[in-house]
């Protein structure tokens, strides 16, 4: 029965992936991409990767889907791109086929059982004080990756902002929203925030011991903020505002401060002294959470477009 379900899931996933690539209409391709993200969430659940499933649902399907819809809407007003020549298509096909072949060869060449660091993590997780192995890996054993991830996201936002026109600088990102104040969108934006705040903070907080964490929690908080922005109840902050810029760099700076503290107290950058590992991991999470919420929410409205107050 499970085998039947898994087989059906794989077939539908492959079909949707083909649809995303082959669809003529950009909007249809994005709709299929979002459905693909949701089904991929189910696939991760079947593989018992609940943390990854949460991230895929929140960021892969949800936020990326919303970003792509925004891109499709912007492309409508842009002049149509020149159709691809058969030369470009052939090059793209060769590049894609080569990448797939190399990846497949790598996966098939793995020894059985595949090399794993999981026993090492299981032996040392008690030192970190957190119970969720994913959080322990992300914030203790491989924290350099997580630090660079946070900085990459910050660069992405800076990149999006730098596309704004000089005349709009330092204005507010996105267009002014004017939903009817008594309309259904405003209604939704009034009843969902309390629920969303509780769920977002809960998923962030429970990430130390259960599936969850700052990325998934921050995405939920960002989604709630975007909902109130879309309903015209709140507005995006001006990109020149001091508190916004301070909050955007606070997370990575806090992370780096913990890393420097580690090089004094534990002998290596980003090393955590065992007696203080849990409080330091919590400190990194709490420092990163507001930064991630701001970045994920502000990526969607994009570059500044309005100079008026």
């Amino acid at each position: 029965m499970t085998l039947l379900f898994d087989a059906a899931l794989v077939v539908v996933l492959l079909g949707l992936a083909a649809w995303v690539v082959l669809a003529r209409n950009a909007f249809a391709a994005v709709a299929a991409f979002i459905a693909y993200g949701l089904l991929l969430t189910l696939a991760w659940l079947q593989l018992h990767g609940i943390d990854i499933a949460l991230t895929e649902a929140a960021i892969g399907g949800g936020l990326t889907g919303a970003l792509l819809i925004g891109a499709v809407i912007r492309l409508r007003t842009a002049p149509p791109a020149a159709p691809a020549t058969s030369m470009t298509l052939a090059l793209a096909a060769i590049a894609a086929a080569t990448t797939t072949a190399v990846l497949a060869a790598c996966v098939l060449a793995l020894p059985d059982p595949a090399p794993t660091l999981a026993p090492l993590v299981a032996d040392n997780i008690a030192v970190t004080g957190v119970e969720n192995a994913i959080t322990a890996v992300l914030l203790a054993f491989r924290s350099m990756d997580t630090l660079l991830e946070a900085i990459v996201l910050l660069f992405a936002l800076v990149g999006a902002w730098s596309l704004g026109a000089d005349s709009a600088w330092p204005g507010r990102p996105g267009f002014a929203q004017s939903a009817p104040p008594n309309g259904i969108l405003a209604y939704l934006a009034r009843i969902l925030p309390p629920i969303g705040l509780v769920i977002g903070v809960y998923i962030f907080w429970t990430g130390a011991d259960n599936p969850g964490g700052k990325f998934q929690g921050a995405t939920i908080l960002a989604a709630i903020w975007l909902l109130t922005m879309a309903a015209g109840l709140t507005d995006a902050p001006r990109v020149g505002s001091r508190w916004l810029r301070a909050a955007l760099v606070a997370g990575p700076l806090g992370f780096i401060a913990v890393g420097v503290f580690g090089s004094y107290s534990a002998g290596a950058f980003l090393a955590l002294p065992p007696e203080a590992a849990k409080p330091l991991i919590l400190a990194i999470e709490i420092a990163l959470m507001p930064t991630l919420t701001l970045i994920l929410a502000l990526l969607l409205p994009g570059p500044p477009q309005r100079t008026s107050s």
């Binding site: 209409n25 249809a28 709709a31 259904i184 969108l185 209604y187 939704l188 009843i191 969902l192 629920i195």
Partner: peptide, 25 residues
């Protein structure tokens, strides 16, 4: 309950878009 609230609201929003003649797809 959450799916009902969001489903009902989104259905209203799509229906309004359709009525105003800017059906996205």
């Amino acid at each position: 309950l959450l799916v009902m609230v969001s489903g009902a609201c989104v259905a209203q929003l799509i229906a309004r878009l359709v009525r105003h003649g800017s059906d996205p797809a």
